[in-house]
Amino acid sequence: MQAATQTAAGRRTVVKVGSSSLTTAGGGLDAERLDALVDALAAARARGDQLILVSSGAIAAGLAPLKLTRRPDELAQQQAAASVGQGLLVARYTASFARYNLRVGQVLLTNDDVTREDHYRNARRTLDALLTMGAIPVVNENDTVATDEIRFGDNDRLAALVARLVQARRLILLSDVDGIYDADPRLATSRRITDVHDLRDLQGLDLRTPGSGLGTGGMASKIDAAGAAAGAGIEVTVTSATRAADTLAGRPAGTRFHPARSEPAAWATARAVIAEVLEQPGLTPADAFHELGGTSLHAMRICARLRKETGQRVLPQALFESTTLGEFAELLSEVRHAA
């Protein structure tokens, strides 16, 4: 049973789609574009992939019903639009996937759900259960309750966190641009970058891209999320929603971020990571566990930097999932004693 579970998990793919790929210029859902995405996802599911869809579009979908002509700046109005739009978004996904006799399950997450140990484990169990029972989780930030202080910021970051949460093999970030370019993709002289092995290869690029004004992410956000996920051993592709079918089928498309080779974490390296966290005065073991293990994107960045600086490859899971709070407290004590 355990081997079967590991095999299924090895085919897990997280797909993130942005607002501009799902909505019309006026803010309503574009049924044709949404159905095309579902067609690609259903084909991948038929090949045996386990899929988690991280979908933006709730706020954008709620604009027209509330007679709003653009995305509001005020948080309360954004939350109101999300409240109306999220229901419309999930209803449309439910109807579209039903064409293939597939069910969806709505999962709304806040930052606490991936940064606090009990919430994190519960979110993972829920997603695992949905996948085991054959449903496709449709994940979004819980915009109706999130405040500016605790928001993910954009769904690229959320998708990277979810990919790590479910231990996905692949992360696919979809937008209206077919990859990372070395300059503004609207220019004829721009060149699409096909492969990224190290984020240093992208330094100095002009990351301006055409935007719809309906979403919050951009190419800089995608590079940040892709680099963090690849550093955690997850293969990442950044491409357009129109190339979703090719990407899911394994055909070359967009920009591929090659995953870092993962090896068992060395405790010496883990201690070095934890020592950084302990630089904050008055930090308790619980605080440190939350800050290092819980803030998983932060942990991925630290692991990627340590791999670059020391040659030690550390998976964030080794810092969070395999370490109980009690063990973490003991390790903190060792580090303090050594200091």
Rank of each mutant, 00 (worst) to 15 (best):
T115S: 15
T110R: 05
V104R: 07
G87H: 12
R92N: 08
G153T: 11
A163F: 03
Q50V: 00
Q50M: 01
A129I: 02
Y93I: 01
L68Y: 05
G62C: 13
E74H: 14
L130F: 07
Y93L: 03
L63C: 08
A135M: 08
D143L: 01
R70Q: 14
Q77C: 07
R116Y: 13
R121Q: 12
A146M: 11
V114A: 03
N140Q: 08
E74T: 12
T144C: 03
D49S: 12
L75H: 05
L63K: 04
T132R: 12
R157N: 07
E117V: 15
L53T: 05
M133H: 15
R92D: 08
G134F: 09
P72D: 14
T69E: 15
G134P: 08
R121N: 04
Y120I: 04
A95V: 05
Y100A: 05
V84H: 06
Y100K: 05
A98K: 03
A123Y: 11
N142F: 10
A135T: 09
V104M: 07
N101H: 11
T69H: 13
V166I: 08
T94H: 10
A160M: 09
N101I: 00
L161N: 00
G105P: 06
T110C: 11
R125V: 04
V84I: 14
A95N: 14
T147E: 02
A98D: 09
G62Y: 12
E74N: 12
T94M: 01
G153H: 11
S55M: 01
A160D: 04
S55H: 07
N122Y: 08
A82Y: 08
T94E: 07
L66V: 11
L131I: 04
R92K: 14
A95Y: 02
L109C: 06
Q50D: 09
Q77I: 10
T115I: 07
N155R: 02
Y120M: 10
A76P: 02
G62P: 09
A64Q: 15
F152C: 00
A135D: 03
L63D: 02
P72A: 13
L161M: 15
L68N: 09
T126Q: 12
H119L: 11
S56C: 12
A129N: 14
V138C: 03
P65E: 12
